[in-house]
């Protein structure tokens, strides 16, 4: 046991920059990308939660590239980065025309991914843009969720529709849509309870919430953002698949990027499901929400 542990702990001392540095050294010696370099590149991807399959494919694509032009360190890493950026940007669609207000945004995801916090930040961002924002506390399950959203609503100067813990979340959503229409809000953001994508009944509940909203506004919810925690491993892909099946997910919000996790799983999600990443959460204060920037994200993978 001890030997395994000590070997491993020593191994962990090797940082990511060593990894990339390794590739650099290989290249200065020889203009070819040798297998060791590719393996190290793969390790960078694996260590970022990109996933085995996606990592293999990306490396394969690099391997099959014409190598004659690759002479410097930069070129191979840069070519690779460019490829990743292209992949991420390919899912970005031109902005859709805004619907007749209220625009309804539904926020979904597994437990503890950071939905409520993100809603607070998003609401703040929108009220700063002089939008009239309404929040719906449709997480009627988790203890304290409604109070938590109420605090964020106050901070963001948004209005709030809520009921009591244990009430029907679809009813709260319905009331909120009505209220948003009557009180002429520009945007309604719905906070849903965290649910594991494997719980059939909870996924049905989510569908019901969206169905009920559609009774009032046929093309709503206009945006459905799936919140993914950057520390999530390969399960993130399964989450995205299941949520996309249960709801018309229109984009990903990647939270908790301020730690050491790289959130590489979104590369796999983007590649398989074509979902764009819209926002990233980078801290705990109200303005720690940024629009997703593919090149920044990719740079961070290699940092």
């Amino acid at each position: 046991m001890l030997s395994v542990l000590s070997k491993l702990q020593k191994g962990l001392a090797k940082t990511r920059s060593d990894l990339v540095g390794g590739i650099a050294r290989t290249l200065t010696r020889s203009p070819k990308i040798d297998e060791a370099a590719l393996e190290e590149l793969e390790e960078v991807l694996l260590s970022s939660d990109v996933g085995f399959e996606t990592a293999e494919e990306l490396i394969e694509q690099l391997r099959s590239k014409d190598r004659s032009g690759l002479t410097t360190t930069d070129s191979v890493v840069e070519i690779f980065k460019a490829h990743l950026i292209e992949l991420l940007d390919s899912t970005v669609q031109p902005p859709r025309p805004l619907p007749v207000p209220p625009q309804v945004i539904s926020i979904i995801g597994v437990n503890g991914s950071g939905k409520t916090t993100i809603i607070g930040k998003l609401a703040y961002r929108l009220t700063r843009e002089k939008k009239k924002v309404l929040l719906a506390a449709a997480d009627t399950f988790r203890a304290g969720a409604i109070d938590q959203l109420a605090v964020w609503a106050k901070r963001a100067e948004a209005d709030l529709v809520s009921s009591i813990t244990g009430s029907d979340p679809a009813a709260v959503a319905f009331d909120a849509v009505r209220a948003a229409k009557n009180r002429q809000h520009d945007i309604l953001i719905i906070d849903t309870a965290g649910r594991l994508h494997t719980k059939t009944n909870l996924m049905e509940e989510l569908k019901k919430i969206h169905r009920v909203i559609q009774r009032e506004i046929a093309d709503a919810p206009h945006e459905v953002y799936l919140v993914i925690d950057a520390t999530t491993g390969q399960n993130g892909l399964t989450q995205a698949r299941q949520f996309a099946e249960a709801a018309q997910v229109t984009g990903i919000i990647l939270t908790k990027l301020d730690g050491t996790a790289k959130g590489g799983i979104v590369l796999a999600i983007t590649r398989e499901l074509g979902l764009p990443i819209r926002y990233v959460g980078v801290g705990e204060t109200i303005d720690d929400l940024e629009l997703f920037d593919a090149s920044q994200f990719v740079e961070a993978l290699f940092r």
Binding site: Q9, L12, L46, S47, S48, D49, V110, G112, D229, A230, T231, T232, G233, Q234, N235, G236, G259, T260, A261, K262, G264, I265
Partner: peptide, 14 residues
Amino acid sequence: ADGMTGQDAVNTAK
């Protein structure tokens, strides 16, 4: 720790 955590588990835990 969240059972769904990926590669970063080693960093945080350490």
